[in-house]
């Protein structure tokens, strides 16, 4: 192992530890808050639901330009993309979101689903 390899290894390890810690802190800061899911398309909130108040499973179809669509399914306490016609299907493979702070994104269609804590007005101020 050369000297540069050791430096790279240390930097990567440090980066890993920092990123893991920040994710843990992020999870803790969201813990115990309400499961408030948002479906956002082109930076606009389309749907906002409280996942704990959902009794019947529900599905939404988010339509975009040029026939793009994503189908999002909601059950009690969880939400996910179930179908889309984007090329990479990262959004569908992300699976169920059930923790506050979880996020699933469909980059090609600019649609994202995220679970936030309480309904807060803070978002508009911080961004």
């Amino acid at each position: 192992m050369k000297k540069g390899d050791k430096i790279v290894l240390m930097t990567v390890l440090a980066l890993l530890v920092v990123s893991f810690l920040s994710v843990i802190i992020y999870r803790i800061s969201y813990k115990g808050k309400a499961l408030n899911a948002k479906i956002i398309q082109n930076q606009k909130v389309l749907v906002e639901v409280d996942l704990e108040k959902i009794d019947e499973p529900k599905e939404w179809m988010v339509k975009g330009e040029e026939g793009h669509y994503n189908i999002i399914r909601v059950e009690k306490g969880r939400i996910r993309f179930i179908e889309a016609n984007c090329p990479d299907l990262v959004c569908v493979h992300t699976g169920w979101l059930s923790q506050p702070g979880d996020i699933a994104v469909c980059m090609p269609h600019n649609v994202l689903v995220k679970i936030e804590g309480e309904k807060e007005e803070l978002d508009e101020i911080s961004y």
Binding site: L16, S19, V105, N110, K114, Y127
Partner: peptide, 22 residues
């Protein structure tokens, strides 16, 4: 991705991507 969707929370994927990158 973060700039595109205007939400830097997407960085919660960073640890997984770091490990896979290594």
């Amino acid at each position: 991705a973060a700039v595109y969707i205007q939400d830097f929370k997407i960085y919660i994927y960073l640890p997984v991507l770091l490990i896979s990158g290594v």
